[in-house]
Design a protein around this nucleic acid. Sequence first.
DNA 1: TGCAGATAGTCAGAGGCGTTGACTTAGGGT
DNA 2: ACCCTAAGTCAACGCCTCTGACTATCTGCA
Lengths: 243, 243
Amino acid sequence: MPTAKSARQTTRETAPRKRRPRDSLSRAVILEAAEKIAERDGLEGLTFGALGTELQAHSTSIYRHFRDKDELVLELIDSLRARSYGSELVSTGDWRDDLRLISRLIHEHYLRYPAFAMQMAARTTRRPTEFKNVEFALDAFRRAGLEDDEAVVATRVFGNFTRAVSALEASLQVLPDEERTMDELAWAVEYRHLSADDYPNIHRVADKLRPVGDPRLFFDGVEMLLESVEARIAAKKRKKRAK
Amino acid sequence: MPTAKSARQTTRETAPRKRRPRDSLSRAVILEAAEKIAERDGLEGLTFGALGTELQAHSTSIYRHFRDKDELVLELIDSLRARSYGSELVSTGDWRDDLRLISRLIHEHYLRYPAFAMQMAARTTRRPTEFKNVEFALDAFRRAGLEDDEAVVATRVFGNFTRAVSALEASLQVLPDEERTMDELAWAVEYRHLSADDYPNIHRVADKLRPVGDPRLFFDGVEMLLESVEARIAAKKRKKRAK
DNA sequence: TGCAGATAGTCAGAGGCGTTGACTTAGGGT
DNA sequence: ACCCTAAGTCAACGCCTCTGACTATCTGCA
């Protein structure tokens, strides 16, 4: 039974796969298939086995083109990023709207590929898209009225917030359904039943508590950061006038 | 060779393990062993196999006490959390310092167990420590002068920021050394070489750019969030006085 | 024209993981 | 004294990544 050489048929359905023509595989072809799978089944569906069937090739053929899975995933992340945003990043003229725009784009991108979010957030790719983002945010904070030093810190804090919180939300989406709904229900139900003695504040606001994954929270956070910048600038102006 | 029943010796070293006495295993015992392993080898070292050897028990015995690995990990996370900063969470009297305190404690905790950081950040454990944190933050924001609705949003934003950014930093620590140093160097070197035409702002502030993982950025972010709360309260006071 | 090498695709399998179902044995209740 | 039940054990399944040997095919060179 395990003698592989036996059957050779033209049916190309039940028979053992025909050998793929030489040079029909390449990094690009593999990445395309990987993207398809990732979009369809998420990151946990992206296995060498799945890639093999998708490509109609033997799974281990991929090792001829990528050293290991990590190399494949990193490459995939960068190609997704380039495709997803980059063209839409055009200044509105208003520094607040610019920062809202870039954070929204990144947020959307992370949620579109939630399985990759953590990797995207943590790793530096050092490619044009990344440079453009930094430049864009720096420029906005400068136009807001921050000094160079302040703008650098603000850019980094803002960027870390955007990427980290987006990744957090994305990771919630990736959880198996059962766990996610349990977690979400917890806020609605379990928090309501805490005693008023031990948890007076929670007890009082239990109705208003939002689940951690509430998407509005991201934008609330962005607004808070913007407000803090505005406050700092206002303080600066007051000081100047006092002189 | 694989006949397991053969040798029975008193050496308790080379011989096949003796059966563990009944009821010598329990959730608590298993969690203790799991914590030991996690501290020593990280999360990827925490397998049922490792747990088995650590406990001198068969790996699958654990299934008598935990439904699956997820349940075990969640329980572990909460016990780590309780031990790590359950006792230190005492109000200072000042709402700002309280928020600085809790965010610092969580930040430190995440960096102490970087392998768990992402799970800790994303999952709701619905256990006392978690309730206490929410109650503590809610109370601080209320004392700052926010209304209930505002305090709820602020608590969530603040919590998401703290957990997400801490998890991001932790995940950097977990990266293989080679990749991490490459990423860090990039900020110092590569960003300096960008053209002044394409990236005028980056070019100007290149010296001041900090790597994404710079630990000060976390606390800068906390201060920005505090400032935004202060600004909102100040605005509220002004409005009141104007009446 | 034909042969040698290199190289891309194939395959079996090693070794790791979580999880399951059948088993064995020890202790407690009647 | 018995048996029943639950805790611990074990073999095995199915999935994963990755390796080393194999084999077919294409390219360059005589």
